[in-house]
Simulated assay, not measured.
Amino acid sequence: MTARETMLPRLVELDGGAKAGRLDGLVGIGEALAAVLMLVGPGAGGLSVALLGVSSATLLITATTSLGAALVTFGISAAAGAVNPEGSNATENNKVKKVFADLWSGWRFLLSNRLILGASILTAVFVPVIAGLQATVLPAYFIAQGLPELSGFAVTGIALGSLLGASVYAATIARTSPRRWFIFGAIGTGIGFGILGTLGAPWLVIVAAVLIGIANSPMSAVLGVATIRATPDAMRGRVLGAQNALMLAAPALTAAPIAVIAQAFGLNAAGACIAIAVAITTVAAIFTPAFRDLDAHAGGPSGGPSDAPSDTMEAPRQGEN
């Protein structure tokens, strides 16, 4: 995942990169495709189980699709994966030391850059909250309502909303301010979680899930593009690796507390806690100085000055983050 994100600016440049908003559009398309897969994937998996049963044939289909994805990567130009040769002459004795030095430099840059740190924290809040909803709160809520089959519709609603939001973002970002998309996403996500947190009527929960998907996907795309552009080419893999590590660790740290609150105080209390946490986060994000200059990262032929690879690119100074 980190390698795929790291290659995006290089792919835009190799494809010409002359049109404004190319990188933004590519990230938006990626968000839309992810939403499509969230809709199609579980259905295709369920159909294969229904037709073939829980058997080795079903697992063979999974293995075949994974192999197909790996083979497709051979179609990517090798130039897209070119990296800064800095440190490539490391000897056998200091290679391990170099790995830890690279790891530390990625985290150090992430922690010192206010924009990237803010985007990482925001993502680390929303990803586990949505994961907790899908894995704990929503299934328990619909079971309590005697409508367990609607749990899947709520998850599908998030995916459907993400598809719609990401598609509109990709189609309009060349003519729309990223800052406006960010504000729309933050406010919409906060409202969606506020409605969903009440755990009212089942239809209202599903509508809130769709709204969350519509608002959150453009905001995620804006933050993803801003992170790519704010990171020098030579540092991008290390910084995105640190950011993805934080994002993947966050659900493991928050799933248990959400479940404990639901068990001890009830589903409504868990939903209210989630809604309050998201509301505080979105309000803070809107007024955080680091996110006021998102439009400053939206220039350049392929989307911004740091879209084009540059091994000599200077890291943003603290006052320019």
Rank of each mutant, 00 (worst) to 15 (best):
F74Q: 01
I76D: 04
I76G: 00
I76K: 00
I76C: 02
I76S: 01
S77Y: 04
S77P: 00
S77T: 03
A78H: 12
A78D: 13
A79K: 12
A79V: 02
A79H: 06
A80H: 00
A80E: 00
A80C: 01
A80L: 01
G81A: 12
A82W: 00
V83I: 06
V83F: 07
N84P: 05
N84I: 00
P85W: 05
P85I: 10
E86W: 05
E86S: 14
E86D: 14
G87W: 05
G87K: 05
S88N: 11
S88E: 13
S88M: 08
S88P: 00
S88C: 01
N89G: 12
N89E: 14
A90T: 13
A90Y: 06
A90G: 11
A90C: 05
T91V: 10
T91L: 13
E92Y: 08
E92A: 15
E92P: 01
N93G: 08
N93L: 11
N93E: 15
N94D: 15
N94K: 05
N94G: 02
N94R: 10
K95H: 08
V96R: 13
V96Q: 15
V96F: 14
K97D: 14
K97V: 12
K98R: 15
K98G: 03
V99C: 01
F100T: 01
F100E: 01
A101Y: 02
A101F: 04
A101Q: 11
A101W: 06
L103I: 13
L103S: 08
W104T: 11
S105H: 12
S105C: 06
G106F: 03
G106I: 07
W107A: 07
W107G: 05
W107R: 02
R108T: 11
R108S: 14
F109E: 08
F109I: 06
F109A: 07
F109P: 06
F109W: 07
L110P: 02
L110Q: 05
L110R: 07
L110N: 03
L110E: 00
L111K: 05
L111W: 14
L111V: 09
L111D: 04
S112Y: 09
S112R: 12
N113S: 11
R114Y: 13
R114K: 10
R114G: 14
R114F: 09
I116L: 09
I116G: 05
L117Y: 09
L117D: 05
L117T: 06
G118Q: 05
G118Y: 03
G118C: 00
A119N: 11
A119L: 03
I121N: 02
I121Y: 00
L122Q: 08
L122H: 09
T123W: 08
T123S: 11
T123N: 13
T123M: 14
A124P: 02
A124D: 06
V125W: 11
V125F: 12
V125I: 15
